[in-house]
């Protein structure tokens, strides 16, 4: 579904992503794990056709993300890290905007509205302004909006960051449902404890891919993902390991 080949991205002097290559299979839930500044957002934005890579290529469903941008855009849904909705518009009006853009009308429009408001448990709040929703509800509304055109590939940038544990769990349940319906998902997170939810993991550190594979394979030999990640960072980034500070 997604094929990332030797992708690098530099902003001026800074290289945000260096020589990243990985693949996401159709119908799987892939995770991208790394701390802030590891390059997760840049890589996701490249795949979502938001920015072109400096070098390398991204192929989505057989189409190049740069040369066939409109076609790729049409089959994916991308939810940026920051709440990308209009805080002064109500839940309904936000959803209306997305449906207008995708030209949804008549019976199909009301069917989808019911469906996605329903599963995000937002039906009682349709008249509330998006800015007045709690963090968890905001994320669920954002998800409903990107799902409204029923994309085949869903890209979510740290959707659960700072969200309360209950909403987080609900969010993961929704993602599992999406996957069961045949959707391909690519999700980034800074929470290492969410790693086990993924079919495949890509571990990023300072713009480079440290490891990839199933969660079990990435953890191999280590008690948990955090230890596995620390060990791997230590092997590539000796400087960081030296930065221990003490009284």
């Amino acid at each position: 579904m997604v094929l990332v080949k030797n992708v690098s991205k530099t902003f001026g002097e800074i290289s945000a992503v260096t020589e990243a290559s990985f693949a996401v299979d159709q119908g799987t839930l892939a995770g991208m794990i790394g701390s802030d500044g590891a390059g997760k957002t840049t890589l996701l934005r490249i795949i979502a056709t938001m920015i072109p890579p400096t070098s390398g290529s991204v192929i989505v469903s057989g189409m190049d993300a740069v040369t066939r941008r409109d076609a790729v855009k049409a089959l994916l849904g991308y939810m940026p890290q920051r709440f990308g909705l209009y805080p002064d518009l109500t839940v309904d009006e936000n959803l209306d905007f997305f449906m207008d853009i995708y030209g949804l009308t008549g019976a199909e429009r009301s069917r989808r509205r019911e469906k996605y408001l329903g599963f995000s448990h937002l039906t009682p709040f349709v008249r509330r302004k998006a800015g007045d929703l709690s963090g968890g509800m905001k994320q669920k509304l954002a998800l409903a909006c990107v799902l409204i055109h029923q994309p085949r590939l869903l890209i979510l940038d740290e959707p659960t960051n700072g969200v309360d544990p209950v909403s987080r769990q609900e969010f993961w349940e929704i993602l599992a449902e999406m996957k069961a319906s045949g959707m391909t998902l690519l999700v980034s997170t800074a929470y290492l404890d969410e790693g086990e939810n993924f079919d495949r993991l890509v571990i990023l550190h300072k713009g480079r891919i440290l490891a990839q594979g199933t969660p079990e394979a990435v953890c191999s030999g280590y008690p948990d993902l955090e230890t596995a990640m620390i060990k791997r960072i230590e092997t590539v980034d000796a400087g960081l390991a030296e930065e221990r500070f003490a009284l």
Binding site: D36, I230, L240
Partner: peptide, 16 residues
């Protein structure tokens, strides 16, 4: 927003 290693160092420092 900091990587796991720096986080671990941080907590060690706090413990001290």
């Amino acid at each position: 927003g900091v990587d796991p290693i720096t986080r671990r160092h941080f907590w060690e420092f706090i413990r001290q």
